[in-house]
Structures are given as structure tokens and as C-alpha cells.
Design a protein around this nucleic acid. Structure first.
Length: 420
DNA sequence: TCTGGGGTCCTAGGACCC
DNA sequence: TCTGGGGTCCTAGGACCC
């Protein structure tokens, strides 16, 4: 049996842990730049505030309804997530951390009563140790565990639901929407409806080979999963295949220097992630886009890559490469909204070798690695931006706004709560 | 005025190999 | 006049997830 543990309204719940007065109020959390609504409390959902809606469209409404509004605080959410996952991993052998607020667990036992008891106990422990409410779904496949979780969250008071026999999940699949199913997005849903397949149950009955031909092998697997035949295994923690850092500017920029500063900031962040995971990369990709919602100019997005002499993890080389790429893409007079860095070839650092065709020798490489280690160490110990490159800029007026960010209660000494 | 960021997997088609 | 069969690797784009 698979068990899916999912934190309820995760970002909102994190804010509530340190601000109990928010418990019965509508609360929302916004994306970068305070742009869109990305998390909502149940009260906010009830008010009809849609997921992903631009905040400016509901700002007045929120004020009128006394909705508590937060900018996103990923330091806090990341740390709270780690605490939840630690609890699960300390208790259960097979855990797959699926996202910041979800984990799949796997149990070889089929004793449903036992599993339900265990689920309730886990839920209680997470609540007591972190203050975060969760919902738990159980099923013979990941997709059915997801279904169970979905129903548990909305309809079950104790927050736990197990589906072990098809007569238990049939009535549920008959009444849920196709888009409630893991792996069915808006495109497939539209196409399925056109084919006369209107419910998840109807999808489960469709001939798998037909679905594979018309859609993809992925949706075919979903059919088997809905029937109770597992196609998706529990994935252990695997190394990333890609690293990306990108952010929109507060407002469009026409100045190349500022764009380079932002690019170098993201390149540095991307390379920090690279080093944390013990990777080197032979290549950096830089992209630059104009305003996607502008009415008076066409949207454009460009991307170029730069190949290093040899695989590296040196932020200095990343900044140089970023500058070169951005100078190539930049057009005077054009105004830009976003810049980003992508690293798509991640090699284990043990694969970093010397190159006989360049003059970079082993000692130079060792020096570079040592310098990066010291930088990371200082920034980790003191403050995120204690040491940085001049190329990253100092003013950083392009930096997005986060008007309503809460303190980093659990990760910064200055932000610790005081008890009088 | 104001519209997020970070991932994965799959497929088709091009370019190349023998 | 007639022009094979079997591969690999890479990239772009689509669809999906949170």
C-alpha cells in the first residue's frame, strides 16, 4: 500500500504556526513580486479567491474581507518542510519526498486497520511537533493514494482515508472530475471529454492501448493505476537533473548593466546549488524575456548557452559567461522583464578532470574549489549575502518587492520570537 | 500600475553513424 | 530506371506536477 502525506494549505499553515491569531481568518500567500495568489486558507477558498489569480485583481476585495496577505517566505517553508520530512523518515523505511509539502510512503503490509492507525498517529505527531495539519490518503497505487488524499482533505474529519478495494473507490471515481486525477491536466481533460470520457471511472474503463495511441504512455499508466495495478514505483531521492534560477524584475528594465547584475545574482545562486549537490557543469544557459503581458510590444524570449573550457563549479566563471550571453542577446531600446539561468548538464564532481588542451592545471582547480568552499561557508554561517561579487551589483533596484514577508522564525537569530 | 518559480517525463524530427 | 536497414544522440516542444 502507498500512503500520501500532504500538508494542508502548506504555506498558509506555516504562517499560522507562528501567528495563531490567523487560525480562523482567511489567509493568502503571494508569489514572487507579490504577483499571484499561490496558497489559500480554507476561508480564503470559500471567499472565492482563485488559485494563481494576479493579486492586483483581488487586492481591494481582500482588504474589504480582511484577508491576511503574506509574501512568500521560502526560508521558513523550506525549513518547516524539512521538519515534517524528518519525522516521516525517522519512522518509516520507504519515504519519497515528492514536493515541499508531500511525501509518498510505502508499506509492504496489507493490514488496512493497522495502516489507518499508523496514519492517524503520524498525523498527530506531525501536528504536535511542527504545528502543521496534514491529510493522509492510502491506496494500492500512488494515483489512488492521491485520490484518497484528495477526498480525505475535503470530506473526512480525521483527515485519513484508505481505499483498498475497487468497490470503495468506484463511487469516488464516478463523482470526481477528470482534472482531480494525478496526471490529467487541462489539455487531456478537454480531449477526453470530446471523446465522451467524462469521469475518472470512465477513464479507468477505457482501453489502455487506445489511450496510449491517442494520448501517451503516461496516461495509459494512469489507467492501470486507477484500476489498482501499480505502474509508478516509490522513487528514492535522486539527484537533480536540472538547476534553474530565474526571477521577474520589479518593473521592465532597459539598462543592460542592471540586467547583467541580476543575471550574475541568479548565476551565483545556481552555482551555489550546484556545489551543494557536488556537481560540476560544462555549460550554462542564460535566457532573457520581454514582458509577457505587454499590449504594445510582442513577447520575445531568447536563450543562449556558453560552454566552459572544462566542467566547473566556479561562480566567477558563471558570472563571466552570463555577462557574455546577455551582451549578445540584449537589444538597445527593448525593455526586459525577466532573466534566468539554467544548468542542464550536471556531472558528479568526481568526473572533473584536468584538460591537456588548456592551461588550467590541477592546482588552479583546487584553488578555485577552495575559494568557493570558503565563500559558501561564510555565507552559510553569517548571512546569505555576506560575501558576493561586484558583478552582482549593490543597489539591486530591480529586485522584486516582498511587502508582506513574515520573519524567518526558525532560521535567523534576529527573527527568533521573544517570549516575555 | 500591478500577472511566479522550479521541476519531471515523453515524443518527434533532424543529423549523424555503419 | 532503379536508391536499405538499423541504430544513436541531441534538441525543441508539449504536457504535466507542486
Amino acid at each position: 500500500m502507498f500512503m500520501l502525506v500532504d500538508c494542508n494549505n502548506f504555506y498558509v499553515s506555516c504562517e499560522r504556526v507562528f501567528n495563531p491569531k490567523l487560525q480562523d481568518r482567511p489567509v493568502i500567500v503571494l508569489s514572487n513580486n507579490d504577483g499571484c495568489v499561490i496558497a489559500r486558507s480554507n476561508q480564503a477558498k470559500k471567499l472565492g479567491i482563485a488559485m494563481g489569480i494576479p493579486y492586483f485583481k483581488v487586492a481591494k476585495f481582500c482588504q474589504a474581507k480582511k484577508v491576511a496577505v503574506f509574501s512568500s517566505n521560502y526560508m521558513l517553508y523550506g525549513d518547516m518542510s524539512r521538519r515534517v520530512m524528518d519525522i516521516l523518515q525517522s519512522e518509516i523505511e520507504h519515504v519519497e519526498i515528492y514536493s515541499i509539502d508531500e511525501a509518498f510512503l510505502y508499506f509492504s503490509s496489507k493490514n488496512i486497520a493497522d495502516l489507518i492507525t499508523q496514519a492517524k498517529r503520524l498525523r498527530q505527531k506531525i501536528l504536535q511537533w511542527t504545528g502543521l495539519p496534514t491529510s493522509i490518503g492510502l491506496g494500492p497505487t500512488k494515483t489512488l493514494a492521491k485520490v484518497a488524499n484528495n477526498v480525505a482533505k475535503k470530506e473526512i474529519k480525521e483527515g485519513v482515508l484508505a481505499l483498498s478495494e475497487s468497490n470503495e473507490w468506484r463511487p469516488i471515481l464516478e463523482r470526481l472530475a477528470l482534472s482531480d486525477i494525478w496526471g490529467v491536466g487541462p489539455r487531456s481533460m478537454k480531449k477526453l471529454l470530446e471523446l465522451g470520457i467524462k469521469t475518472p471511472w470512465a477513464l479507468a474503463q477505457a482501453p489502455p492501448s487506445f489511450i496510449r495511441k491517442r494520448f501517451s504512455v503516461t496516461l495509459e499508466r494512469t489507467i492501470y493505476e486507477l484500476k489498482g495495478t501499480p505502474c509508478f514505483q516509490l522513487d528514492s531521492i535522486q539527484p537533480n537533473k536540472q538547476i534553474m534560477v530565474s526571477r521577474a524584475f520589479r518593473k521592465p528594465i532597459t539598462n543592460l548593466q542592471e540586467i547583467i547584475e541580476a543575471g550574475c545574482c541568479y548565476a551565483t545562486q545556481a552555482f551555489e546549488k550546484l556545489r551543494q549537490q557536488n556537481f560540476v557543469t560544462p555549460r550554462i544557459q542564460v535566457f532573457l524575456t520581454t514582458h509577457p503581458f505587454s499590449l504594445n510590444a510582442e513577447f520575445s524570449s531568447k536563450i543562449i548557452s556558453y560552454i566552459f573550457q572544462m566542467p566547473t563549479q566556479d561562480s566567477r566563471l558563471a558570472c563571466k559567461a552570463t555577462r557574455i550571453c546577455l551582451e549578445k542577446m540584449f537589444k538597445t531600446g527593448e525593455s526586459y522583464k525577466k532573466v534566468g539561468i539554467m544548468l542542464t548538464e550536471l556531472l558528479d564532481i568526481t568526473q572533473q578532470t584536468e584538460d591537456i588542451f588548456t592551461n588550467i592545471d590541477g592546482s588552479e582547480m583546487a584553488k578555485s574549489n577552495a575559494l568557493m568552499t570558503v565563500m559558501d561557508h561564510i555565507n552559510h554561517k553569517m548571512d546569505k549575502n555576506m560575501v558576493f561579487f561586484a558583478a552582482q551589483g549593490i543597489q539591486r533596484s530591480w529586485q522584486g518587492c516582498q511587502q508582506w514577508r513574515s520573519p524567518c522564525y526558525t532560521t535567523r537569530w534576529e527573527d527568533l520570537m521573544l517570549v516575555y
